[in-house]
Design a binder for these strands. Structure first.
Lengths: 177, 177
DNA sequence: GATAATTGTTATGCACTATATCGAATATCG
DNA sequence: CGATATTCGATATAGTGCATAACAATTATC
């Protein structure tokens, strides 16, 4: 049904036709190749895990697009908000980001005035990270978008109970596997 | 308990000491920094999803290391076995691999004599992909390793019912999200 | 038969990840 | 105290995954 609806809708606009193949649709009476058999692939957890992860990240980016935040950036902002007074190494380690790679990431956030590095007075080697006011504002807006658009959509697809069970199992794997 | 056990075990071997810090262990009476608060991060599905995926892939690589196969390579071999007579575009599309990127991947598999490209007689533009005998043998061994080491471990961690539920939800997300 | 589309391929760029190394600051230990 | 080792942020660099544009050869379309 979705297919036919989309097809007719496209046909209706066909006045400004970009030629059928240019739109990547099968020709009129074309025999569409039979779908490939996934076989054991559909039983391989890692396979579905990866594909699901890509979809979820894709949707996250879409939902949070107005704020131009990646999942990784969002996680940094969240962590900074919850853990004031921490330095780069601590934040990076918690997120599984290697310290060298965290530098450019912070450069990006700092250049957008979302957070700042402050030399620690206790240990003048380290930089204490803190959210700016703008960072807190952006984080608040991002949280709202994530909750109402992104996670809400997942809830709708799976149902709250299933979603919770899924989250729990994923956390278990991440923690103990 | 795990902590103290590990600590005492390490202390027992301390005869051949490579200096405590070199082993990245906290000093004798060191006050270990309190773990950071994940906060809303633990409720973000994408976060756990990504971390779980990394763990699972890591374990896959470990289990299948004797055969030197990545998850992506394994999935290609599986697909070729189940779908003989297909060309590069069809296999790549099914796996979500872009055709340009699939070329080098096939070069690798072909150079190890795991599969071959055969010019199609129907359409001389396309290459029909087929497993070699060695490819089939490696795939069979890989399947066994994956089942007995990798998936078995996941089953042990989650239980068969949970594992099935997890797989189902991930497939749903990959399909419908 | 002219034009467009498809297949495999190459080239290329961007993002993410990983390791080695550095100077500055601090900690450790004789 | 003073020498050595360690830690912190940073730089450089390399590998990998992923994406787009473009090309020659071949096939499909009109």
């Amino acid at each position: 049904m979705t297919v036919s609806k989309t097809a007719s809708a496209a046909a209706a606009v066909d006045a400004a036709k970009p030629s059928r193949a240019a739109r990547k649709e099968p020709a009129e009476g074309a025999v569409v190749d039979a779908a490939l058999q996934l076989g054991e692939l559909s039983e391989l957890l890692g396979y579905s895990l990866k594909r699901a992860q890509l979809r979820v990240f894709e949707d996250f980016l879409r939902c949070v697009a107005p704020l131009q935040l990646t999942p990784a950036q969002f996680s940094v902002l969240l962590l900074l908000d919850r853990n004031p007074g921490r330095n780069q190494t601590e934040i990076a380690n918690t997120l599984g980001i290697l310290r060298p790679n965290f530098v450019a990431m912070l450069d990006g956030l700092e250049s957008r005035d979302l957070c700042t590095r402050v030399r620690s007075t206790n240990d003048r080697r380290s930089h204490i990270l803190m959210l700016t006011d703008k960072g807190r504002a952006v984080l608040a807006r991002a949280k709202k978008l994530v909750a109402t658009k992104h996670e809400a959509r997942l809830n709708e697809l799976l149902g709250p109970a299933n979603r919770a069970a899924l989250l729990d199992m994923l956390a278990t794997i991440a923690r103990e596997f």
